[in-house]
Simulated scan of single mutants.
Amino acid sequence: MKNPFYVNELPKQEMESLSLVDKTGNYILSPDDVEALLAGRRTNLMSLKNLDASGVHIEQLDAKLSLDRNPDGQVSFRLHPIYKQPIIPPLLDEDEAQALITGETLSIDKIIPGPGKKEVVFEYDPDTREFISFDPKLVIAPDKINGYKLKDWQKDDFQKGFNVRLPDGTELQHRATDPKGIRADRAALILSVLLDGGISYLLIRGLRHLLNSDKKEQADEQTPAFKKAYAEMEKHFAKKFKAADQQTEETRGYNKTRAR
């Protein structure tokens, strides 16, 4: 699954100004936050210190970060601070907004008025007290989860942040506000997507609970379907690495032949 950003595109100068680089030049970011940034999502809430913005010194600011690509291709940070109170978007009415704020509803799908009938999905980030929106068509839905092939309507539900239930009872949702992009009632999932170059596997561990609750224990991810999908993933990578090693050996042999 291809990320929209590469690690070498992280804006180092901005990271230094945000005190996210130590004296040795290493990033002071967790692997989960780096993964979230490269995937085009928001980091966890972090405490940024000694900021200078438009000539104003800010000793400390709690905020989330995401990456943004400018029209000229340059990558820069976007800061998502904590708002004093949520600002309700025009497309949402009071009841819809409150349902998102309270967690009664986790996502709301709306149609933007005008030609084209463009869809937009709203979520609420309780950490920053901010409503966020995204185009569901830009969300890549997996072809399989834990080896179960998703139906077209399940892919559509996934893209819109609705609940997806697998045959073994596993439940999950795409979450644009979550650093990993998914929440589930199990701590790990195996996603697979069919790409031009074949199948691509992604094992995601450390998933947050679907119910926005860290107190309720998640179900065991080691279901028969998960174990089978894991075995298939290992077999796929073993075959891929073997083919790569064989190609390397053939290249070495070819080079030796040419050198004679």
Rank of each mutant, 00 (worst) to 15 (best):
T248H: 14
S30F: 03
G55W: 04
A176W: 01
R175P: 00
D156R: 10
E119S: 13
A99H: 07
G198C: 03
K117E: 11
F122T: 03
E232C: 09
Q60M: 10
L150I: 02
Q222N: 15
T223K: 05
A53Y: 15
K118C: 10
E9R: 00
K242S: 14
S213L: 05
P113C: 07
A229C: 05
S213P: 06
L45P: 02
D168K: 02
Y83S: 15
D68G: 10
K23Q: 14
K235Y: 12
S19T: 11
L194I: 15
Q247K: 13
L191R: 05
L191T: 01
L203I: 06
K215L: 15
I145A: 00
F131A: 01
K235M: 08
I101H: 05
L211I: 09
F134D: 04
R165W: 07
T128Y: 00
P115Y: 15
D152R: 13
G147S: 04
A238R: 10
L106S: 12
I132N: 04
R258G: 10
D68P: 08
D68R: 11
D109R: 12
Q222Y: 13
Y201L: 00
F77M: 03
D22K: 02
P167V: 04
W153M: 15
E16K: 10
K117I: 08
T43E: 02
R78S: 11
E232D: 08
Q154D: 05
E14R: 06
L166Y: 01
E221G: 13
Y230V: 07
L195T: 14
D109W: 09
